[in-house]
Computed example of a mutant assay.
Amino acid sequence: MPRTQVDWDSWKAVLFDLDGVVTPTAVVHMHAWDAMFNAFLTSRSAADGVAYPPYTEQDYFAYVDGKPRYDGVRSVLESRGITLPEGSPDDPPTAQTVCGLGNSKNDAFEEVLRAEGVVPYPGSVELILALHRRGIPMAVVSSSRNAPAVLAAADLSSYFALVVHGGVAEERGLPGKPAPDTFAYAARELGATNAEAVVLEDAVSGVAAGRAGAFGLVIGVDRGAGPEALTSAGADLVVDDLADVVPADPDGSAPAQEGTR
């Protein structure tokens, strides 16, 4: 797709979703769910004397994808006919509860992230570097509490003045996407109004949040949702990759090819 001209210098803040926009983190989440559930099911099979089917990639799409962590745990357990106490979010990862398994998955995510790392989308890195050179403030707005760790693994932390993750939202009582509150909070913290900020999202719910908040520009990144769905949700512009909206450097030259730091 040819480059699309965006007058980035007219905006006071750029707000990036993380998974699907900056990094392909879904793969890390999938591996973490696999590690956690297969360890649990192996142990449970031995304890119950029942050969529970192993967790597969299909289980991720059927029971986990797009759901809050504990809801995903419940769905997979139900698919195997296993009932556990609900527990509480403070349960340790060793607890045999829904929340305990969910917390164990989070630990598994961190282990997979450390072992495998995460490689950001090259086009997204290109845009981040170009905006950084122009001095445009940037934030990451993600529902994942793991966002800071993912950014660190991708070697991109230093480019973002602010990371609004799920923990920040909970602490401040901000409803998640498709409500616009987390994006609005990030814009304020960067000294911009909603109308002066750009939202970059790959999810329909995230695009809807940008539209609900009347942000100045909402760019949908099509990683599979489809351009029609993103446009219908409120995207002003839909691109296949953020390389399509990378500006020339301030001196008019082509974007420099440099690595992350």
Rank of each mutant, 00 (worst) to 15 (best):
I136V: 15
A130T: 10
G220S: 02
A152N: 10
V163I: 14
P180S: 14
A233N: 09
V163A: 08
E78F: 06
T42I: 09
D107T: 10
D181T: 12
G220F: 00
A169Y: 05
G100R: 00
R188M: 12
Y159F: 06
A154W: 00
L15T: 03
A47F: 11
L77D: 00
G216C: 02
G20N: 05
P250H: 03
V163W: 10
R74P: 01
E189C: 14
D240L: 09
H29G: 04
A254N: 04
Y185E: 06
W33I: 00
G66A: 05
L127E: 07
P54V: 15
E126F: 02
S88M: 07
V150S: 04
M138T: 13
S144N: 10
E78I: 05
G206S: 11
Y63Q: 05
A187P: 06
D244F: 02
V141S: 13
D249I: 03
T260M: 03
P92S: 03
V73M: 01
A186K: 07
G234K: 12
F183C: 09
G117R: 11
I219E: 00
S79E: 04
R133C: 09
G234Y: 11
V125F: 01
V64L: 02
A147R: 06
Q58A: 15
P93T: 01
D7M: 04
V221M: 01
T4L: 06
Y55N: 13
I128R: 05
L129H: 14
V168G: 08
E86D: 15
T56F: 13
L156P: 00
D91F: 04
R172S: 11
F61I: 05
A95V: 00
D222K: 02
A243R: 12
E57P: 03
G49Q: 10
G135N: 14
Y159G: 02
